[in-house]
Design a binder for these strands. Structure first.
Length: 880
RNA sequence: GGACGGCUAGCUCAGUUGGUUAGAGCGUUACAUUGACAUUGUAGAGGUCACAGGUUCGAAUCCCGUGUCGUCCACCA
């Protein structure tokens, strides 16, 4: 007798199974038994931050990628899924700094750069394993032998080479530009690392020479060099071009009045003060009008020495002090206390950003590059999207990507933090050399590090051995085999932050796209549609769910009911439901083994060995259903319709196979059953495997003698021979449901036997042939009479399927009024339907314009409904 | 301010180029319970596809508008 336990216990099996896979070495494509011409299928895992713990966003991504990877591995592709982690420069440095401060009350400056980096490395080494082990628990079939880290030595070499190459091509330059400066992190931020926070502030209306103008930052008055108005603003036209002397808290100064379209005449008084050094808009105005720039705020967010008595104050302190002084000088007209505006803050620490002019390294997105035949990075990156070389799933994100790219400004890549790749540039006496090694004594390395996206932007090729695998513009090794990759799967929130950078970097370094498809998944929300976050405490911990319900249940709940690009709500209840379903699969296997009285499945006899003459209608039906499933599931997965694939599998497994066919196998005992049950169970496990690898492999290990993970999927036409009998079997199913329904409606006990009369019309032979099922498939009839006659049976429950009539005499029980009412309602409904069909078919334009098949279909429907109505009316009369 | 998305059964969601009488899971109701499976089975109830207009023979699906919730981008002197 079979040895399967009564219920499936994920905890007992998952760890063992994962170990078995990992030790087999088959996660590594080099160890797969492949056809010589096997195509590559590559996914590079979006590297989680090294300090991360697994959350449902990761789980969702892992479930999707593992599905794709296992599917293609089973299809015979040279399948590589490459893991890694990201050093997430600013984020990690912040964590390390916080820890340092908490434990030793020290700042990074107390420690010094070298010591601090030692601390950071210690920290990263201990945290890295957490996320990777949690990734394993999701069942991810990653090739751990190729594990990479954005901050390891190999990636360091790649980053240096990339920087030097880009510099030499003129794609990287150094220059003074306005940057977003975080005074707390002491670093620049890219535009998209800046967040905007709504807040209430004061709006100060200043008396400003001949103007009254509004500002939220009166302290920047110390850096003003102009006043700007809109060119069409009649109020100020006479003043444009003139110089005015303005009274300030540190004495008088001169401003020039300029006309610029950037000014909104409806805001404030329509005149703005221009502080070129500390505002992006003002800076642009200053450039257009050739205005001088005066820097008054330093990198610590404090007023500089040129600010007289305010020097050394923080911006906020200086603002308070200056406002007091201005009030004394009567320079403030009035103050709006309730001014709503959004403040730019650092996305990591929430500190208010100071726009500052600063010497930084930039990637030029507009520079025409020789290697791109005089196209710029931006133009190439847009081109690969327009030409569909890269496809976004869902499609609507194509536009978001392209719009964002069109508006892209030069990318500031230098950061003043310590945790990151050092910039390979050297300074001596004002000269700069860009190279990996020091040019010699006296040179000092640029203290800045690179934006973390610079190294993660190189992820698809730096993980494949670039630059060693790319010499003289030729790919070799892993790069030749696995690049470009097939899919990048990531959250849509980093489409711009990361995806766009990967595209530019790959185009530049390797001359090709990094991936063919970008599958964007939505955010995972709680059951109320709120973002999950630690502070709100509404997060569902995937590891906790795995402990409780098993990995397969967690994976299914993330795959089914989820569509690309859309957010998804999830609850523990949903996961629980899929745990139940996973257990159902277990019991199906248990039943099949029981039914076949065996512990191992015998795969020696194949579907092709079946004796067609021995097959029952039900056999043919399940085989054709299986054929359909086999084709459709593969297509759906290839089209990234994972949810639909899952639903079809579930429907087949639960309804067609378990509820119908397995029940039938208790009744029918023809000799083909053994092969059919064996083959369908086997192929069902294969088709399910990419979605729920653990339970399928667990069962496989009990019943077979190979590893399911590297089995091949059932071939396309395996079940094709048996695609005809679906309609007839559907009739049988419907009749059985009608009988069960009647029993339920009249609350018959399961022991109560009934008689059923069926008038079979032209289906006499089919129905007679299936008498066994009709009698015994949970219908408990003592007698079934199948005739051609059309005599009414009085005082009986009545129903019909197409032209087949079913009578169940229920003497003394049948409620004739109720039956009559039921019939009337049904006749009414059908009449309505018929009416709409009639008018449709009488409509010449419909008949003329609609495709012929549609018209024909409607005509058949019309005829059938007419017959049905007539039958129902006849039956109604017998009741009266 | 600009762009995008959601709005379909009590809840969570599918619905692929417009063409069945709009589907699933959960929940719910009734019945059942030594059964491969109570992590169960059988059956039922439940929807004006947010609203309003348009295109079309035909719209949940395409177009215009409105409402509402959400996301991204820009700006806020």
């Amino acid at each position: 007798m079979p040895t399967l336990a009564k219920t499936y216990n994920p905890k007992e099996n998952e760890e063992k199974i994962y170990q078995y896979w990992e030790e087999s070495g088959k996660f590594n494509p080099d160890n797969l038994d492949l056809a010589e011409n096997a195509k590559p299928y590559t996914i590079i895992l979006p590297p989680p931050n090294i300090t991360d713990k697994l959350h449902l966003g990761h789980s969702s991504m892992l479930a999707i990628e593992d599905l794709l990877v296992r599917f293609h591995r089973m299809k015979g592709f040279r399948t590589l899924w490459l893991p890694g982690t990201d050093h997430a420069a600013i984020a990690t440095q912040n964590v390390v700094e916080k820890k340092l401060f908490k434990e030793k009350n020290q700042t990074r400056h107390d420690l010094g750069r070298e010591k601090f980096m030692e601390e950071a490395w210690d920290f990263m080494k201990t945290t890295q394993s957490t996320i990777l082990n949690q990734t394993r628990r999701m069942g991810a079939s990653l090739d751990w032998s190729r594990l990479a880290f954005t901050f390891d030595d190999q990636r360091k070499k790649a980053v240096e080479k990339m920087f030097i190459d880009m510099f030499e091509a003129g794609a990287i330059y150094r220059g003074e530009r306005m940057v977003n400066w975080c005074p707390r992190c002491h670093s620049t931020l890219a535009d998209d690392e800046v967040e905007h926070k709504e807040e209430k502030a004061k709006l100060y209306w200043l008396k400003y020479g001949p103007f009254v103008l509004a500002t939220s930052r009166p302290e920047t008055k110390l850096g003003d060099t102009a006043v700007a108005v809109h060119p069409d603003d009649k109020r100020y036209q006479a003043m444009v071009g003139k110089d005015y002397e303005i009274e300030g808290v540190l004495g008088k100064f001169i401003v020039k009045v300029v006309a610029d379209k950037a000014v909104d005449p409806k805001f404030g008084s329509g005149a703005i003060k221009v502080t070129p050094a500390h505002s992006f808009v003002d800076n642009e105005i200053a450039i257009r009008h050739n205005l001088p720039s005066k820097k008054i705020i330093d990198e610590n967010g404090k007023m500089m020495e040129n600010c007289g008595k305010y020097a050394g104050m923080t911006v906020l302190k200086a603002r308070e002090a200056i406002v007091v002084d201005m009030q004394e000088l009567r320079l403030i007209d009035h103050i709006d206390e309730n001014y709503q505006h959004s403040a730019a803050v650092c996305y990591r620490c929430g500190t208010i950003i100071e726009p500052l002019p600063s010497e930084q390294w930039f990637i030029s997105v507009d520079k025409k590059l020789e290697k791109f035949d005089n196209q710029s990075l931006k133009e190439r990156a847009i081109e690969v999207s327009k030409s569909k070389e890269i496809e976004f799933i869902p499609k609507r994100f194509t536009k978001r990507y392209e719009d964002w790219m069109e508006n892209l400004h030069d990318w500031c890549i230098s950061r003043q933090i310590w945790l990151g790749h050092r910039i390979p540039a050297w300074h001596k006496d004002g000269k700069i050399k860009v190279q990996a090694e020091t040019p010699g004594p006296g040179w000092t390395q640029d203290p800045d590090t690179l934006d973390t996206w610079f190294s993660s932007g190189m992820w698809t090729f730096s993980t494949l051995g670039w630059p060693n695998t790319f010499e003289d513009n030729k790919k070799s090794g892993d790069l030749a085999q696995f690049h470009p990759t097939q899919v990048l799967n990531t959250g849509y929130e980093i489409l711009t932050l990361w995806v766009s950078r990967m595209i530019m970097m790959s185009l530049f370094a390797v001359g090709e796209i990094p991936f063919e498809k970008v599958h964007l998944h939505g955010m995972i929300l709680d059951q109320h549609g709120k973002k999950m976050s630690k502070s709100k405490g509404n997060g569902i911990d995937p590891i906790e769910m795995i402990e409780k319900y098993g990995t397969d249940a967690v994976r299914l709940s993330l795959l089914i009911g989820s569509t690309a690009g859309n957010d998804m709500k999830i609850s523990e209840r949903k996961i629980e439901g899929y745990r139940n379903f996973v257990n159902k699969i277990w019991n199906i296997a248990r039943f099949v083994l029981n039914q076949l009285k065996t512990e191992k499945l015998d795969f020696s006899k194949k579907i092709a060995d079946l004796d067609l003459a021995d097959l029952t209608l039900a056999d043919q039906w399940i085989l054709s259903k299986m054929h359909q499933l086999n084709i459709e599931v593969k297509t759906d997965i290839e089209n990234h319709n994972f949810s639909i694939a899952g639903e079809k599998l579930r429907k087949f497994t639960r309804e067609d196979f378990a509820d119908w066919y397995l029940e039938i196998s208790k009744i029918e005992t023809n000799s083909s059953k053994k092969i059919i049950l064996t083959e369908i169970l086997k192929d069902l496990l294969k088709l399910w495997h990419p979605l729920i690898p653990f339970i399928t492999e667990t069962i496989w290990q009990k019943v077979a003698s190979s590893m399911l993970m590297t089995e091949s999927l059932p071939e396309e036409n395996k079940y094709k021979k048996y695609t005809k009998e679906i309609a007839d079997f559907d009739l049988i199913k419907q009749i059985i449901v009608i009988v069960r329904n009647a029993r339920a409606q009249y609350k018959l006990n399961p022991q109560d036997k009934i008689k059923v009369f069926i008038q079979a019309d032209d289906k006499l032979e089919v129905l007679k042939d299936q008498k066994n099922l009709l009698t015994n498939l949970q219908t408990n009839t003592e007698k079934i009479e199948i005739t051609e006659s059309s005599d009414e049976v009085p005082n009986a429950f009545y129903s019909q399927v197409e032209t087949i009539k079913i009578y169940i005499p229920l003497e003394g029980i049948v409620d004739l009024d109720k039956e009559a009412k039921k019939l009337k309602t049904e006749i009414e409904r059908l009449n309505k339907l018929l009416k709409s069909l009639d008018s449709k078919l009488n409509n010449q334009r419909f008949v003329k314009n609609a495709p012929k098949e549609i018209v024909k279909k409607e005509q058949i429907k019309q005829t059938q409904i007419k017959i049905k109505i007539k039958d129902l009316e006849t039956q109604l009369q017998t009741i009266k």
